[in-house]
Design a protein around this nucleic acid. Structure first.
Lengths: 197, 197
DNA sequence: TTTTTTAAATTAACAATGTTAATTATATTT
DNA sequence: AAATATAATTAACATTGTTAATTTAAAAAA
């Protein structure tokens, strides 16, 4: 009875992998059940033997992408930096991840997840996405007395909303119009939030 | 040749009105061409005699809603308040408008507007939505020397991203979980942004 | 090794969507 | 009143998510 389990996980993996590829490549507007099944090498109805519906499939992707995002930011922030400087670099790397994969931004922040199914735990992952990526930096600032515990909560929240807002307007509403402007703007806003430190 | 124009505007008005009603009532996920036409009292294909596509129709709604939002905030902030206090009240009223009509939030900030058609001017309305609603307050603060011009730009930007982020997480990701929490959270964050004044 | 049973995958089918083409009904002009 | 132009409707198509019916492949029993 163990083989069954292994095989089922493997099949799920194929569909999850296909979904992730489409999400990263063509984006969420080109994602469809038939598309996914094609990429996975199966018929569209087969998908429903392994997932309740397309949302169910998306939940798995969110967890995977959060992990990937964590790795991405670690790789893209120089290890020499410390404290506030490092925190800022981490946040900017976090943003770059979503700029590189706008479909993942859509998935994390824009998709409607109406059926209350699996949701709870996945919503939790999203709500703590940035905070988790920055966990090391927050800890460092705390243990070195750079930020007081009380203020840290406000900063975390402020940063979360600012970062999401910046990404939302750039990716979804073309403001600012160019990437350099966006980066400069983002850098300024993040500094402004953190310099009330 | 003037009657033609009047009649055409009237017809457009029926569809726009219908669209707005559905958007405010059932929300964007229940909006469809057939739905709109039903509400307007015409067949679905008739719509295409007056609008290029459904996006074209949405553009008109955005302008109307922005005006309505402006009126809403004016009515919901006490006239006695002045300066920063009044600004804060205006921002909170702005947020309440979108809480009352989540479909309008979707329309303003979440909908994909891919065909570059009419877009430019409508995008501009959205990008300046909050700033315009707060125009009176910003002017007051400026002319009374409460905020310096240079800093004001940063605050406007910061406020825009914070407000959008707060709404996005509450409406789309259920965080925080209750409305009182959301209001308290929002109030705190807005104060925090403005108190660096 | 056949045969039977079970499980898995595929094709058919449905309802809902946006959009266009073909057709009918309504005004307008001659 | 007849002919023409305009506007509205029904038909039709392609695309979506999802379910039901059917075929194919795998496992178990003989």
């Amino acid at each position: 009875m163990k083989n069954k389990e292994i095989q089922e996980q493997r099949m799920k993996g194929y569909f999850i992998q296909a979904t992730k590829e489409i999400l990263k490549g063509e984006g969420i507007q080109n994602l469809s059940v038939r598309n996914i099944a094609d990429q996975a090498g199966y018929s569209y109805a087969t998908l429903y033997n392994y997932f309740k519906d397309i949302n169910d499939l998306l939940f798995y992707c969110i967890n995977d992408f959060q992990e990937e995002c964590q790795l991405f930011t670690e790789e893209h922030t120089q290890k020499e930096l410390k404290g506030i400087e490092r925190l800022k670099a981490t946040v900017l790397a976090y943003m770059r991840y979503f700029i590189e994969y706008p479909g993942i931004f859509d998935l994390f922040y824009l998709v409607k997840m109406d059926g209350l199914g699996n949701k709870a735990s996945t919503i939790h992952v999203i709500n703590n996405s940035l905070e988790n990526v920055c966990a090391y930096d927050w800890d460092y600032c705390l243990s070195h007395g750079i930020i007081q515990p009380a203020e840290m909560e406000v900063l975390k929240t402020q940063l979360k909303y600012t970062v999401t807002g910046l990404l939302l307007f750039y990716l979804n509403r073309i403001s600012p119009e160019s990437y350099p402007e966006f980066i400069e703007n983002s850098s300024n806003q993040i500094s402004h939030v953190l310099n009330s430190k």
